[in-house]
Amino acid sequence: MNNTILEIIRLKKTFGGVIAVNDLDLTVAKESITAVIGPNGAGKTTIFNLTAGFLAPTSGSLIFDNQDISGKKSYEIARLGISRTFQHVQIFPEMTVLENIMIGRHVRSRAGLFVSSLLPYFLRKEESKIQEDAEKYLEFVGLQPVSGKHAGELSLGNQRMVEIARALASEPKLLLLDEPASGLNARETLLLGDLINKIKDTRITVMLVEHDMELVMDISDHVAVINFGQLIATGTPSSVQENQDVISAYLGE
């Protein structure tokens, strides 16, 4: 049995002359919580953007679930089972919270444009199924009270929850969280930690980029430390904390 869900092999990405990711090797174990940490500008978000298909690698490959996904488009990767959230929350502000999450069901439903045009929504079975399913994820993150509100009206913390619920609604195998705790207060961060553990319990692999070390050390099974686009250490939270390279990278020596 293969216990790896994502394998990054000699991944490289350059922007003009700047090397953002430099021959990176990294594996993510199935049903784990893996944190990617590193100083600012280390290339963490670039790794996410490459994995989620927002950027195409310069060289190297990404193997997800025994399939090469390098260079695939974001919508293709989403269909294969990788969902993501964004460092700067990307929700659909003009749509209701429930509708936002219903978008997450897009890949798990089929109705096409031409068929839809013939029947009003209340006569379509699939549409009510989508709504039902979305409500489950709404409940999962605890947003039922604001279900009908426009997502743009919510607090940042709740907007993040909408984003996570939307990502979960597509039933991903791998969930990428890009700095989920940024902008959250202490209480919200604590709740976020609980939620991430709860997501892991549903057998979804979670990979996150995060600056909040307390959160990272608290919930992660594995920590990968990146600097200058390269992996400098990997292991359990406690082993990484004691690693000399990591300490010097953070202290900037």
Binding site: Y75, A78, M95
Partner: peptide, 13 residues
């Protein structure tokens, strides 16, 4: 219309 990036990452072509 709301966010092309988020739509793409939700599997929308």
């Amino acid at each position: 219309h709301g966010s092309e990036d988020a739509a793409g990452s939700s599997g929308i072509h």
